[in-house]
Amino acid sequence: MPLTRQGRKHCAQGVSLKSWIADRQLQEDMLHVSLRSTALSLFRQELFDTAVFEAFKVLEVLIRQAAGLGDESLGTKLTARAFDPKGGPLTDKMAEAGERQALMNLMSAAIGSDKNPQSHRHVGLEAREMIIMASRLLGIVDNRRPT
């Protein structure tokens, strides 16, 4: 199948078809700013497992910082402490109890299941959705930072 006029234009400008497609699959403005230099770059290099790991590592580090917890707090134990529905430092005390519990569960599930995907399974293009999820969760952390 021949390239479209737009495809020929981009190729003529020195943009490879592969990078043009990658740019469309996961656009920079879709992501939290802290993921753009690491996870996005790795995704565009088709290093999907590493891109997902980096996205969730950034999430874990920023949760720890925002909650004021030490380096000994890791993984799902970190998210359980940070978003503890009964008074975690990143818990929205104005939210309904079930919503607070659900957010803690969501954060814990994301860190527990997606941070180390290469140790559980091969990650392909679903990495896009996983990175977008990490980005969304980073936005929640930003909104919960104590002022």
Rank of each mutant, 00 (worst) to 15 (best):
M1C: 07
M1G: 09
M1R: 08
P2W: 04
T4W: 09
T4I: 12
T4C: 09
T4R: 08
R5S: 06
R5A: 09
Q6M: 05
Q6T: 10
G7C: 01
K9C: 06
H10Q: 14
A12V: 04
A12W: 07
G14R: 03
G14N: 04
V15C: 02
S16E: 04
L17I: 12
S19K: 08
S19T: 14
W20Q: 12
W20N: 05
I21T: 11
I21R: 14
D23I: 00
R24H: 11
Q25F: 09
Q27I: 00
Q27E: 09
D29Q: 15
D29G: 06
D29K: 10
M30K: 05
M30N: 00
M30Y: 12
L31E: 01
L31H: 01
H32N: 10
H32Y: 08
H32S: 04
V33A: 15
V33I: 15
V33L: 15
S34F: 01
L35H: 09
R36C: 05
R36Q: 15
S37G: 02
T38H: 13
A39D: 04
S41Y: 15
L42G: 00
F43M: 02
F43K: 01
F43V: 01
F43G: 00
R44Q: 14
Q45W: 03
Q45C: 06
A51M: 06
A51W: 01
F53I: 00
A55Y: 01
V58S: 04
L59S: 05
L59P: 04
E60R: 09
E60P: 15
L62T: 06
L62W: 06
R64I: 07
R64W: 06
Q65A: 10
A66E: 06
A67E: 01
A67H: 02
A67R: 01
G68N: 12
G68W: 03
L69A: 09
L69N: 05
D71L: 12
G75M: 04
L78C: 07
L78P: 08
T79G: 08
D84H: 15
D84L: 05
P85V: 13
P85A: 08
P85T: 11
P85Q: 06
K86C: 03
P89Y: 08
L90M: 07
D92P: 06
K93G: 12
K93T: 15
M94T: 15
M94V: 14
M94F: 10
M94L: 15
A95I: 01
A95E: 13
E96R: 11
E96K: 09
A97K: 14
G98L: 01
E99H: 11
R100K: 09
R100D: 02
Q101D: 03
Q101T: 13
Q101S: 08
A102H: 07
L103V: 10
L103C: 01
N105H: 10
L106P: 02
M107L: 12
M107T: 11
A110R: 06
S113L: 13
K115F: 09
K115A: 08
N116E: 09
N116F: 12
N116W: 08
Q118L: 14
S119K: 14
R121T: 08
R121Y: 07
H122W: 07
V123S: 13
V123D: 02
V123K: 05
L125W: 06
L125P: 02
E126M: 05
E129R: 05
I131W: 03
I131T: 00
L137D: 04
L137S: 13
G139A: 11
G139N: 14
D142I: 02
N143W: 05
R144C: 06
R144N: 12
P146W: 10
